[in-house]
């Protein structure tokens, strides 16, 4: 497994994607699976930077592990938290439209991963747990 802790700086979004992509290589992913995971990671980490900490600096914990060919990615912050998770996950819902946020972050995570779980507590932080089977289609066909 991989356990990383980094500051909520936007440069680190790319680092999180690269680490996830490198970890996935052992499962011989397709180009599409690679893009799926990179996008989901990018959305989760960006949420922590943009929403959880806004302009403050804070810590983000990024874990990747796997059981057989199912990878599990956890992105955790200790920021403002989400009071209404259901609402936050609604497509196109955003609290920051003026900052050109689309409200598509959670929708992308759900579209690109097999499962997305969000645990949050206002003023405590948010934890996003995502899983995805890599090479699943190939197994089905063959």
């Amino acid at each position: 497994m991989i356990h990383l802790e980094f500051n909520s700086e936007s440069e680190n979004e790319g680092i999180a994607r690269v680490v996830a992509a490198a970890y996935m290589m052992r499962f011989d992913p397709t180009v599409e699976e690679m893009a799926d995971v990179k996008t989901a990671v990018s959305e989760a980490v960006t949420n922590s930077i943009v929403h959880a900490y806004t302009d403050k600096e804070g810590k983000i914990i990024f874990d990747i592990s796997s059981v057989e060919n199912i990878i599990k990615i956890t992105v955790e912050d200790f920021g403002i938290g989400i009071s209404d998770i259901k609402k936050a996950m609604e497509p196109m819902y955003t609290t920051k439209a003026e900052e050109e946020r689309t409200g598509m972050g959670f929708s992308f995570m759900e579209a690109f991963m097999d499962e997305v779980q969000v645990i949050s507590k206002p003023a405590k932080g948010t934890k996003v747990i995502m899983t995805k089977m890599i090479g699943g289609n190939e197994n089905l066909h063959g």
């Binding site: 994607r17 990018s42 959305e43 960006t46 050109e100």
Partner: peptide, 13 residues
């Protein structure tokens, strides 16, 4: 070779 929803938001803007 990559764009996420932040890129979408910027283009929409």
């Amino acid at each position: 070779g990559f764009m996420d929803s932040s890129g979408v938001g910027m283009i929409l803007g």
